[in-house]
Each structure stands twice: as C-alpha cells, then as structure tokens.
Design a protein around this nucleic acid. Structure first.
Length: 253
DNA sequence: AGCACA
C-alpha cells in the first residue's frame, strides 16, 4: 500500500519540485533578511492570500533560519498555485525562491491527528516540560474554499471583474480626469505600503505608494505621468490581494 | 546557504 506523501490531502495534483512532493506548505528562502519578522509575515500573508486560504505563516530569526519562511495553505492546490505564481517574485527587492516544504506543518498535523509534540523529534530536547496551551484558530473568515483568484502571471493580472458596484451604493458616474496619481480602494485593511509597492512597482514610471494610517483600505500610488498611471491601473484593476477586488481610479486633482 | 512549528 502506498503512503500518501501529501500533507493534508486536497487533491491538488501535480508533480514534485526539486525532488520534494507537493505539500500544503511552501518553503520560501532568499527572503530579505533585513525585514523584521512581524512585517515579513504580514507581507507574506498579504502577497500569498490571493492563492487560497492561509492557515499560518512561520518565520524565525535564528541564524539557521534567517531569510526563510513557511506558508501553510489549506490545500495543496493553493500551495501549488502559489509556488508557481510567485516563483522569483521580487519581494523586498529579492526574488523569492519557493519549494514545497519537506515535512508536514504542525498546524496540519494537529488537524490530522498525527501531531507529535516536538520534544520527541527535536534533537534539542532541553525542555522536557509539557505545556498545554489551548489553541484557537480564529482565522479571518473568508470564503477561501470557493474560487480564488489565480492571476497567472504578475505582468498581466486579469481584468476579471471590474467592481463598478463595489460600494454599498453606486455613486453618480463622475467625469474621469486622468492623473499620474492613482487612488486605490477596497484593500484589505492590513495591507501595507510595502506590499502595495511590490505590485505597483512592476509598472513603468512607478514613483511611490502612500498609505494613510487613519484610513485603512485605501492608498495613493504615484507614477511619472498619466499614461504610466493608466497602464498600471488597467493592469491591476480588480486584482485581489485577498478576496475583494481592488478598485483603482485616478486620484482627484 | 540554511526545512520549523518560541
């Protein structure tokens, strides 16, 4: 009988990468080591949640684990899309290198019932104490099981659906005045400027992203001229960082 | 370069 090497099932299909079998968890290295862990994890979450529901993002600051992270998805299909879609993606100025994780993540093993406490397998068993802390997985409730946006390549994300009626009420159509500054709305409230920059800087003429702490969910992105701003707007219109498509318009002058 | 679960 053949043991399923897949950690977590899900039936994603697809072959091994670098001799590692598909896993719900991806292993990322070549990450920028200057980024603080908390920010790194938030940004990874922001950048990867477009591929499916994320159960956990792990990164450590120890010497042996600098520049590396694990992103645990709910299913293998999401992990595979993430691996393929974000391979070499410039993240804090360094191309991400992504593989499937070699072993099953604890969070998955716990859900599985196959979890073995770490004292058993860690060679560094300096703490034989067993602490039992309750764990709550209060994940952001998002319909991650349905269709998730798979943008394919980042050079040309799809203009899948333009969220014209995205707000609670549709405003009167305004006269559109092109501007080299874009106004971005409907962002997840924890979206950082760094994360936005990673998307918007891919287009010609990118200058900067500005977020406003007091106003989460929106941002301004400036380009060298209106034509460049327009190209970026068309490319990223409706792009989903999480489940809600972003709305990109010209900023008011 | 480096596959963990602070």
């Amino acid at each position: 009988m053949s043991a399923e090497a897949e950690a977590g099932g899900g039936g994603g299909g697809g072959g091994e990468v670098n001799g590692v079998q598909p896993n719900v968890t991806i292993y990322i290295n070549n990450l920028n080591e200057k980024i603080k862990l908390e920010e790194l994890k938030k940004s990874l979450n922001a950048v990867f949640s477009q591929f499916g529901k994320i159960l956990e993002v792990l990164a450590f600051k120890t010497l042996k684990h600098k520049g590396q992270a694990w992103v645990v998805f709910e299913d293998v299909a999401s992990a595979t899309k993430a691996l393929k879609g974000m391979q070499d993606f410039p993240f804090y100025d360094k191309p991400m290198k992504i593989q499937y994780a070699k072993t099953k993540s604890d969070v998955v093993a716990k859900a599985d019932g196959t979890f073995v406490p770490r004292e058993r397998r860690k060679r560094n068993d300096e703490k034989p104490e067993k602490k039992q802390k309750r764990e709550q997985h209060h994940d952001v409730s998002q319909g991650g099981l349905g269709m998730n946006a798979y943008p394919g390549t980042y050079g040309a994300p799809p203009l899948s659906q333009l969220p014209f009626g995205a707000g609670p009420r549709v405003m009167m159509p305004e006269i559109i005045v092109p501007n080299s500054i874009l106004f971005v709305q409907n962002l997840p409230h924890d979206t950082t400027a760094m994360v936005l920059q990673m998307f918007f800087c891919q287009y010609q003429g990118f200058k900067e992203v500005r977020t406003i702490e007091a106003k989460p969910g929106i941002a301004f992105v400036e380009y060298g001229d209106e034509g460049q701003a327009t190209a970026a707007m068309n490319a990223l219109q409706g792009f989903k960082i999480k489940e809600t498509p972003m709305l990109v318009t010209y900023a008011k002058k």
